[in-house]
């Protein structure tokens, strides 16, 4: 499926690997269980490594591996299941993760701006997606009342002007 980054579609260079499947040459996303079990072997690979977190995983669990990871994928199994928002924020804020954070699953365009503010990099979207719907949604509300992970420009009181685009 294509990815949405900075409001534009781009192809996905990463491959998600089942736990028992052999690893490919290129960038690969594995489960946390596999990452734990094969940490050394995976570190020895000569290609970027990513991990897919299930919604119930606490970011602390992946913390020991973050310096070896270029990507963390989080998942909204249903659009209204918002655990990923806390995972994303914690990865950035508590663990200082600077690689790609990817939102997968059932993500609505209406959640794009908030995902970005929590610190997401890319969103996995269906093939037929019109990116304009996402950028419109992202750009509709330009004012926020609370601190976030993105580079907000502080204004008076609790308010910050958004710079998501």
């Amino acid at each position: 499926m294509p990815l949405l980054e900075d409001g534009r579609l781009r192809p996905d260079d990463w491959t998600s690997i089942e736990d028992e499947a052999p690893l490919p040459e290129g960038p690969a996303i594995v489960s946390l269980a596999r990452l734990r079990a094969e940490a050394d072997a995976l570190a020895g690979r000569n290609a970027p490594l990513g991990v897919a977190l299930s919604p119930e995983t606490q970011p602390e669990e992946v913390a020991p591996f973050l310096d070896r990871l270029a990507l963390v994928a989080v998942c909204l199994p249903k659009s209204k299941d918002g655990r990923a928002f806390t995972q994303i924020r914690a990865l950035r804020e508590h663990h200082g993760f600077t690689g790609e954070i990817r939102a997968t699953g059932h993500v609505l365009p209406d959640q794009y701006a908030m995902l970005l503010r929590c610190g997401v990099t890319t969103v996995e979207v269906p093939e037929s997606t019109d990116p304009a719907t996402w950028t419109r949604s992202r750009d509709t509300i330009r004012i926020a009342y609370q601190a976030a992970q993105s580079a907000d420009r502080p204004l008076s009181l609790l308010r910050r002007k958004l710079e998501l685009a």
């Binding site: 918002g82 806390t86 701006a113 509300i141 009342y145 609790l158 308010r159």
Partner: peptide
Amino acid sequence: EILRQWSTLHPEFTWL
């Protein structure tokens, strides 16, 4: 009022 502003469209706590 501070709680109102802080909670309005909170990026992390809108899908509880």
